[in-house]
């Protein structure tokens, strides 16, 4: 089964609407300087392929796992290329962290292929530069510093997307033997997301703040994240769970309450985000 059949007529209205002005995006890069800002053209430029996610199979659980496999292909290839790129300082904690995450994402690919059997989708062809917008592997002369910043920003966006996407598929896996392993992958993605966030804060010498500790505050994508990654964070500001407004029910602010719960993301949104990096 080809991924191209799996992803059809991509609708990226959400992300396309968020490309906004370059000036806003520059502002998000703060201390990293103009060099980084120039490279920080947002996701969702016109180079993005126009494809949409459509469940190939009537079985919601299989569709959920096919989406999961597609996201895992994306992550697995990203980390392998990151480690091969030479952008991560040799022998650094960052390299060790990427090695550990890479090991897990590749294992998730194998695990999901095994589980899906004949229903496994093939890996798409990815373009992590999004048509030359990014240069996370420093292949096009961006320079190590900017490439490193992009490598960290993309990792955070991918991990946070993974957490939200698995959560969004939980309902489709209810009552199936796939639910528990999916939950087990989901929490590993959350461990990754937490670590990448602190790593970014250290590498980019950010001030310690609510965005540098490992959790998502309101719908803040965090300092240094391109504005187009906002789609990954929209909705995270929710403070009402199961009908209970937890700001009203506790002594805490919406900052702490929003951090306490990660929100799900529907399959279309997850596929739209992944689709930005898919060539075919």
């Amino acid at each position: 089964m080809e991924i191209i059949k799996f992803l059809e007529s991509f609708t990226s209205d959400n992300l396309m609407a968020k490309t906004s002005s370059r000036r806003d995006v520059f502002g998000t890069f703060g201390e990293l300087g103009k060099k980084a800002a120039l490279a920080a053209i947002p996701f969702g430029l016109a180079v993005a392929p126009k494809k949409t996610f459509a469940f190939q199979d009537q079985n919601a659980a299989i569709g959920a796992l096919q989406l999961a496999l597609t996201l895992e292909y994306l992550e697995a290839e990203f980390y392998i290329k990151a480690l091969e790129s030479g952008v991560l300082p040799a022998g650094s904690d960052a390299e060790a962290i990427y090695e550990q995450i890479s090991k897990h994402e590749s294992a998730h690919v194998s695990f999901l292929i095994d589980g899906l059997g004949d229903n496994a989708v093939d890996s798409p062809t990815f373009d992590f530069t999004v048509g030359g917008t990014f240069d996370p592997f420093n292949e096009n002369g961006t320079g190590q510093e900017v490439a490193y910043a992009q490598l960290l920003a993309l990792a955070q966006a991918f991990e946070d997307t993974g957490v939200r996407a698995y959560k969004g598929q939980a309902g489709n896996l209810m009552g199936t033997p796939f639910l528990t392993p999916a939950l087990q992958i989901h929490s590993v993605e959350a461990r990754h997301a937490s670590e990448i966030r602190r790593l970014r804060a250290h590498v980019m010498d950010m001030d310690l703040n609510q965005n540098a500790l490992g959790w998502i505050t309101m719908n803040n994508r965090g300092p240094g994240m391109p504005e187009a990654t906002q789609a990954v964070y929209d909705g995270e500001e929710n403070v009402t769970q199961g009908g209970v407004n937890l700001v009203n029910a506790t002594e805490f602010t919406n900052v702490a309450v929003s951090q306490s719960y990660d929100e799900p993301m529907d399959g279309d949104t997850a596929a739209t985000i992944a689709g930005l990096f898919i060539v075919s």
């Binding site: 959560k167 993605e189 461990r191 199961g242």
Partner: peptide, 20 residues
């Protein structure tokens, strides 16, 4: 289903804590 999703919303935050 709603309880499962809420449990999912919490467990990923616990995992973020564990990693930190």
């Amino acid at each position: 289903p709603d309880y499962l999703v809420i449990a999912g919303k919490i467990v990923s935050v616990e995992a973020r804590h564990a990693a930190a």
